[in-house]
Design a protein around this nucleic acid. Structure first.
Length: 468
RNA sequence: GGCCGGGUGGCCGAGUGGCUUAGGCAAGGGACUGCAAAUCCCUGUACGCGGGUUCGAUUCCCGCCCCGGCCUCCA
């Protein structure tokens, strides 16, 4: 049974399912206002590992990740650049999709947009107003937080001790609420802003209500898991839970929050500080698989830092894995082997992931397999090597880090055969030079290949080449 | 002011009331190699500070210091 940390109960608990064999997950996706940064990708990768592990365990997964395609910032930025808000959000949605694809994050089962669900949102707000927990005020609709006794259960905040921040007052985010804690479900349209009709006049959805409406639309009023970044615990998830509860929905049974990515030095990554690293920036310095490794190797709840040094170390760690898989595959091929031969490491790996997605421990098991495999390779124990390679690749598959199937190298297929033939010519010439102990000539040939990016390695099994 | 997390060996990063005290990177030594590369083996006073509980604490409790997040929006 997979056990996961639950934010509400502050404990690791089994992920209970509404329906056996099926896991319903709702993830708060991005507000598509600016290009994705590495933090967005960390979120996606962490949850992708969760999803792939559930799939590996044979579960059916309905994975809902929304797109917030209308909000204050989108409207503001679009107006500033004289671009329609829908053009900006569409452009940014594409940028996010490309970023997710680049690191092989599985596409969500459904990716609902807020603007495509206004009727559901209006209906939900209507229920809340009818039920007396929400009220209209000057064209806005607010949820009366004090009317929801369970408010604060997820974040641990106590309504009596919350205070309205100075910043909110300074920015004029106070609206026409009866109580400072109340939050907007529906925002009355301002001059020149996009709006949709509603019983309370033209306006647009508040931020929190959209997730409640879309989660219920695709997963039902009770579902298994709600996930998102640690920065969403309060107020976003607290408010989602409050309004859903007020509407009579049991809502999410388990709440998962992943850690954030900081810039170098542990500083918060934010546009105002000018230190956010976009996915495009990161991919300019490391290949996608290394980015995935770097973002996915830490435990999902820990804070991780993004810097050149982190990227470099991730590249080195991944290279060790990749080298083993390629070297071993050269010798034993891609034959799949009875996993019973490697049952012990797999069980250890599975136990690590089952325990709150313990990726670091799982990677330790994987690295143990790599070390053992390298020794078997040297000892030329082929049957054992094949078994070890199989189990290592199965582990890599769960993490989506298999260099052969998940990240086939450039120049695969016919081009590889051509290059291989050319490299073999040089290898043969070098072999002749070595035979007559003409080390200068042999080394010159090796150096020339190296300067073209081809690294030669002399092994007991002959000469092996790889791209540097 | 309130609510959450953290502080582990040169770096990153797991974990545990005592056991061969993760793993990776980097460093040093050895093996292999014509030299390399790759690989294997070995090495290094680790657990923020001060108390307490305990036969024994990095791990539990109390206090303190420091760092980060949230309380407008943010993965």
């Amino acid at each position: 049974m997979l056990r996961l940390y639950d934010t509400r109960s502050r404990a690791i608990a089994p992920l209970a399912l509404q329906r056996e064999g099926h896991v319903g997950i709702y993830v708060c996706g991005p507000t598509v206002q600016a290009p994705p940064h590495v933090g967005h990708l960390r979120s996606a990768v962490a949850l992708d590992v969760l999803r792939r592990w559930l799939l590996e365990r044979g579960e059916e997964v309905t994975f809902v990740r929304n797109i917030t395609d209308i909000d204050d910032k989108i409207i503001h930025d679009a107006a500033h650049d004289d671009e329609p808000w829908w053009a900006l959000s569409t452009r940014m949605t594409r940028a996010f999709t490309q970023a997710y694809d680049a690191v092989q994050v599985l596409p969500p089962t459904v990716e609902p947009r807020v603007t495509g669900h206004v009727p559901q949102i209006v209906a939900l707000i209507g229920d809340l107003v009818a039920g007396g927990t929400a009220y209209e005020s000057g064209g806005d609709v607010y949820l009366a937080v004090k009317a929801v006794p369970s408010y604060g259960e997820i974040s641990g905040q106590k309504p009596d001790q919350l205070r309205q921040s100075d910043k909110a007052v300074a920015h004029g985010h106070t609206g026409t609420k009866r109580d400072p804690l109340d939050f907007a479900l529906w925002k009355a349209a301002k001059e020149g802003e996009p709006s949709w009709p509603s019983p309370w006049g033209p306006g647009r959805p508040g931020w929190h209500i959209e997730c409640s409406a879309m989660a219920v639309e695709y997963l039902g009023t009770t579902f298994d898991l709600h996930a998102g970044g640690l920065d969403l615990v309060f107020p976003h998830h607290e408010n989602e839970a409050a309004q859903s509860t007020a509407a009579g929905h049991p809502f999410a049974q388990h709440w998962l929050h992943h850690g954030l990515v900081t810039a170098k030095g542990g500083e918060k990554m934010s546009k105002s500080l000018g230190n956010s690293v976009t996915v495009a920036d990161a991919l300019a310095s490391v290949p996608p698989v290394v980015l995935r490794y770097a973002l996915g190797a830490a435990h999902y709840r820990s804070t991780i830092e993004w810097s050149e040094q982190v990227a470099t170390e991730a590249a080195a760690a991944y290279a060790r894995i990749e080298t083993f898989v390629r070297n071993a595959t050269d010798v034993v091929g891609e034959t799949s082997v009875d996993l019973a031969l490697s049952a012990a490491p797999w069980a250890e790996f599975a136990a690590a992931l089952d325990d709150d997605l313990g990726v670091p421990q799982a990677l330790a098991v994987l690295h143990g397999g790599v070390r053992a495999g390298n020794a078997l390779l040297a000892a030329r124990d082929l049957p054992a090597l094949a078994a070890t390679l199989s189990v290592v690749r199965r582990m890599l598959g769960v993490l989506c880090l298999d260099p052969l199937t998940d990240w086939p190298s450039v120049g695969s297929g016919e081009l590889t055969a051509v290059v291989d033939a050319l490299v073999q010519l040089a290898v043969e010439a070098r072999a002749q030079a070595r035979e007559r102990k003409d080390w200068a000539q042999a080394d010159a040939l090796r150096d020339r290949l190296a300067s073209s990016g081809v690294i030669l390695e002399d092994t007991a099994n002959g000469v092996r080449w790889r791209l540097s």
